[in-house]
Amino acid sequence: MRRHVLITGASQGIGRAVAIAFAQRGDQIAVHCGARRDHAEETVALLPGDGHTLLVGDLSDPEEARRIADNAERDLGGVDVLVNNAAVAPSAATTHRVAEVSYPQWQQAWQRMIDVNLLGAANLTYCVARHLIDRGAPGSIVNVGSRGAFSGEPDFPAYGASKAALHAFGQSMAVALAPHRISVTSVAPGFVATERQTDRLAGSSGAELRGQSPFGRVGTPQEVAAAVLFLASPEATWASGTVLDLNGASYLRT
């Protein structure tokens, strides 16, 4: 059966790989991006099949999140699967070490990451879930979290906290939405070789990053996409509430 899938932050990296994976199984995709429309258009062009659509909007704005959900529902004829992948990610521009940033810089980093990584996903989940409930239809929601929620992010504490909160939010929603036949799961990737990490992997830090895993490498967007595809499948409904580690044994939870 062809499903209708909304994927946020799908202009590159993990989001693009997830979009391709769903489209390859015959699903119809709504590709969301926050700003890089040109890259998102490239994602749409890479998708096999037809009927795919592109949505642009800032998820930190609650009204934008509602508009994105409503437009995806309209364009796809109903959203069956939501993948909350969009995030303000760790980078040189978002570093906020306590000893090195001013208080206003600290506040700015926290506000932006919480607004997008947590509240954006929460608002979109609400809107998509309400559409599913109103239609009386089953569905799946998969959140893309992070290993950093467990291992800590000393240079990006707001990022680690936002992802830990996203995991907890997903588990709360798994309980709340199960009576409506909506499953909610999360994945927690470690370091993944996306386009924005090319320089880090090629530079002096590459060996250290690959050495974090006993496999001697980092993860790929396709590996994360494969896990998301499974968790969103009807066969994985009984996994609702889980947080799946995808880090090549680089961090083991107890």
Rank of each mutant, 00 (worst) to 15 (best):
L54V: 11
L54M: 12
L55E: 04
V56Y: 04
V56R: 06
G57V: 13
D58Y: 09
L59W: 12
L59C: 06
L59I: 15
S60D: 05
S60Y: 02
S60P: 10
D61L: 00
P62N: 09
P62F: 03
E63T: 11
E63S: 04
E63M: 02
E64W: 06
E64S: 15
E64A: 15
E64K: 08
A65P: 00
A65F: 06
R67I: 05
I68M: 04
I68A: 01
I68H: 03
D70L: 14
D70G: 09
N71I: 06
N71S: 14
N71Q: 15
N71E: 14
A72V: 12
E73A: 01
E73H: 11
R74C: 02
R74W: 11
D75E: 08
D75K: 15
D75H: 09
L76H: 09
L76R: 11
L76C: 06
L76P: 05
G77P: 00
G77M: 01
G77Q: 03
G78M: 11
V79S: 05
D80R: 00
D80M: 09
D80Q: 01
D80F: 01
D80W: 01
D80N: 01
V81L: 07
V81K: 05
V81W: 09
V81F: 09
L82R: 10
V83L: 08
V83A: 07
V83N: 00
N84K: 07
N85M: 13
N85Y: 11
N85A: 12
N85V: 12
A86I: 13
A87D: 04
A87G: 05
A87E: 04
A87W: 13
V88F: 03
V88G: 00
A89E: 03
A89V: 07
P90G: 03
P90N: 10
P90T: 02
S91Q: 08
S91K: 10
A92S: 14
A92E: 13
A92L: 13
A93K: 08
A93M: 01
